[in-house]
């Protein structure tokens, strides 16, 4: 984590602490931490000489920013019109059931998986689409195929061969 704190300061300095760069700074910081922790946002406000309420306002305005921790694997199920009519709902349901997510939960207790929906990924020809960590695209998915993909990730994790989240660019929002 120490390395990441240095990174935080580096990010702010690379933008010369300019308030106009706040969104870019938040994006880069989120890439480091996988979310925007409260203390980090307060630190950014302090370093940039703006009020913490302003930083909080910007961070909550955009859907791409998250103030709660996300899992190592962020799974986005497209629920745009095309994906929806071709059965994104059963896929979403199967994913949540398989990962044991209940109620309003979107992240698993072990912080491995986060399941979200997204309005359109612009890949309607491949509907229904699921994207894992921003770069792993699964097209024409079925509940069975997506559960299979999750099982592969889990077994890779067990073998300890998995890619680290920063390599997969986990927090790139679509």
């Amino acid at each position: 984590m120490e390395r990441k704190f240095e990174r935080l300061q580096e990010i702010i300095e690379s933008h010369q602490g300019k308030v106009a760069h706040l969104i870019a700074i938040l994006q880069e910081v989120q890439e480091e931490y996988r979310y925007l922790p409260e203390e980090v946002l307060t630190y950014i406000a302090t370093a940039m000489k703006v009020s913490p309420a302003t930083v909080y306002g910007v961070a909550t305005f955009y859907a791409q920013f998250s103030l709660i921790p996300k899992g190592k694997y962020v799974i986005r199920v497209c629920d745009g019109t095309a994906c929806h009519v071709r059965g994104s709902e059963p896929i979403h349901f199967a994913l949540r059931e398989n990962l044991g997510l209940t109620g309003g939960e979107s992240t698993t207790g072990d912080m491995q998986f986060t399941v979200e929906t997204v309005s359109c990924l612009g890949a309607c020809g491949l509907a229904p689409v699921v994207v894992i960590n921003g770069d792993e695209v699964h097209g024409q998915t079925t509940p069975e195929s997506i559960v299979g993909a999750i099982k592969r990730i889990v077994s890779l994790e067990k073998q300890g061969e998995s890619k680290s989240p920063s390599e997969t660019g986990c927090c790139q929002n679509a």
Binding site: V50, S51, A53, T54, Y56, G57, T60, F61, Y62
Partner: peptide, 8 residues
Amino acid sequence: GIWDFAHR
């Protein structure tokens, strides 16, 4: 700046 708008 105690108050600000949040969410959307």
